[in-house]
Structures are given as structure tokens and as C-alpha cells.
Simulated assay, not measured.
Amino acid sequence: MYKVALVDDHTLLSEAIGGLVRQFINFEVVNISVNGKEFINYLETANSDKPDVVLMDVKMPVMGGVETTKYLSKYYPDIKVLALSVEEEEGVVMQMIRSGAKGYLLKDTRKSILEQALLEVINYGFYYTNTVERIVKQTENLYEEEVVLKDREIEFIKHACTEMTYKQIAEKMFLSPKTIEGYRESVFQKLGLKNRTGLVIYAIKNNIFTP
């Protein structure tokens, strides 16, 4: 049985989602927490009931989804986070993915998609749909020939996956902002990308950056 936990401050909604998950074959819900701090407290006392996947809300009181996902990535890397939120702004999506989330679903997702997402996160390590799908498609439509990245371009990509601004990246790499802009344009052109979120996803999928 695959173990699933839910972290969401909307109790009725999380109970309803938990009920759906319990209907899936080979899935069980082992914990429902109202925020990240409560969930981490649960993990620290749980024995065999640590979840395989966590359905994580983004905005919660006490300890939100981004902070909790970062904590799990560092201390419980085997637990996969699947964001489940009403937020669909690109910046929010990017924060969760950069923090270590393996997928991002909106809360109006169909039951069948939720089940598919859980299975693919467990079996393949990631699943993106809805808002993120259009971004991921950018990384799936790369040039057919192998993309060759220079060492400094790879260094730039790693920094771009953090919360640093391009100006801060320039300072970190001891380069001018204009040179960093050149790296950005070069990398985006080589990879067929249009935005920084797509770059983060590409870097994670190709083991350039690890949350």
C-alpha cells in the first residue's frame, strides 16, 4: 500500500480529498495535518507510517507549503511532495518546484488525474499538469540534437534555480549584469525555453539542480 499524507488548513477539503485517495487501489491516507509544523511533528514521532507522497497546500498559517517542502527536501528526501493548491500564478508554481515539489496540481483537478499524478510521482519521480503543463512542454520540445552547455552556462543555470535575482547572480559569478543577460539569452535559446520556471524544471529533470 502506498501511504499518502495531506497538509492543508482547510479541514473539510482535506478530509474530502483524503476520502478520494482512500478509494484509489493500493493507497491509504496515514495523516492529515493543518499546517507544515504539525506535519513535521507527526513525522518525528511516526515509525512505519511515514508517507510516500504528501499532498501539500501552498498557503497555510504557522508553516506554509514552500517552507515545509524545503524542510522535507532536506530532512526527508524520500518523501515526495505533490503540491495541491488554488494558486496558479507562475511565481508560486516556481517557488514550490524550486523548493522540491515533484508536481503541482490545482484543487479543481479531476479524481482520475489526481490518481494518475500520485502514481507517476511514485513510479517516475515527478508529474506536472494544469498550469505547469504548459511550462513543462517547453522542456519537452527541445532540439533533437544533444544540447551542449558550457561550464559557465551550467553554473548560471544552478544559480538561476535559486531565489537570487539576475543582478545577484552577476555578483556571485563576478560578471557584469550584461554578461549574465547574455548567458540567459544563450541558455534559453539553446534549450528552447521562454521563462525561468521552465529553466528550473529543465534543471531538475536533467540533474543539474537538486532542490
Rank of each mutant, 00 (worst) to 15 (best):
K150D: 13
L55P: 04
F174S: 14
E115P: 00
L55C: 09
S99D: 07
K111R: 08
E38R: 11
E67G: 06
N47L: 12
F39P: 11
D108C: 07
Y143E: 12
D78K: 15
M63N: 04
G103C: 02
Y166A: 08
I122P: 02
A101D: 03
A160L: 06
L43D: 02
Y127N: 00
Y104S: 00
K107R: 11
A101G: 10
D49Y: 15
K137L: 08
N41A: 14
R152D: 15
F156Y: 13
L82C: 01
Y127T: 00
E163T: 08
N141F: 08
L106T: 14
T165G: 02
Y76V: 00
K70R: 15
D57R: 00
K172F: 05
L114T: 03
G91W: 02
T162Y: 13
T165R: 06
M63F: 10
L72W: 14
G125Y: 02
A170E: 06
T131Q: 11
E87S: 06
V93M: 15
T69W: 10
G64D: 15
E145H: 12
R110N: 10
A170Y: 03
H159D: 06
R110C: 03
V62A: 07
V86L: 10
L118T: 04
E88M: 13
T45P: 08
K102I: 01
V121G: 10
N130V: 02
V93H: 05
Y127G: 01
V62H: 02
I97K: 02
K167S: 15
Y166K: 11
T109F: 07
I154V: 15
A160P: 09
F126G: 01
V121A: 05
L84C: 08
V54H: 05
E89S: 14
I154G: 07
T131V: 14
R152K: 15
L149E: 12
Q116A: 12
Q168C: 04
R152G: 06
T68C: 10
K74Q: 12
M63K: 11
I40P: 09
P61T: 03
T69E: 05
F126W: 11
I154W: 03
A83E: 07
E120T: 13
V121D: 02
D57F: 01
L43K: 11
G91Q: 12
V66M: 11
G100I: 01
M56S: 00
E140G: 04
M94P: 00
V81Q: 11
I154R: 12
Y42K: 03
P51N: 07
K70F: 05
V147A: 10
T131S: 14
E145V: 12
T165D: 04
E87R: 05
Y104H: 01
G103S: 04
E38S: 09
L114F: 02
T69S: 10
P61M: 03
F156A: 00
K158Q: 14
E153D: 05
R98V: 03
S176R: 10
L149W: 08
N47T: 14
P51L: 09
K158D: 03
M173T: 02
S48Y: 11
A46E: 13
M173S: 06
I154M: 09
L106F: 01
N130T: 05
K107V: 06
E44N: 15
N130R: 07
E67H: 04
G91L: 13
Y166D: 05
L43C: 09
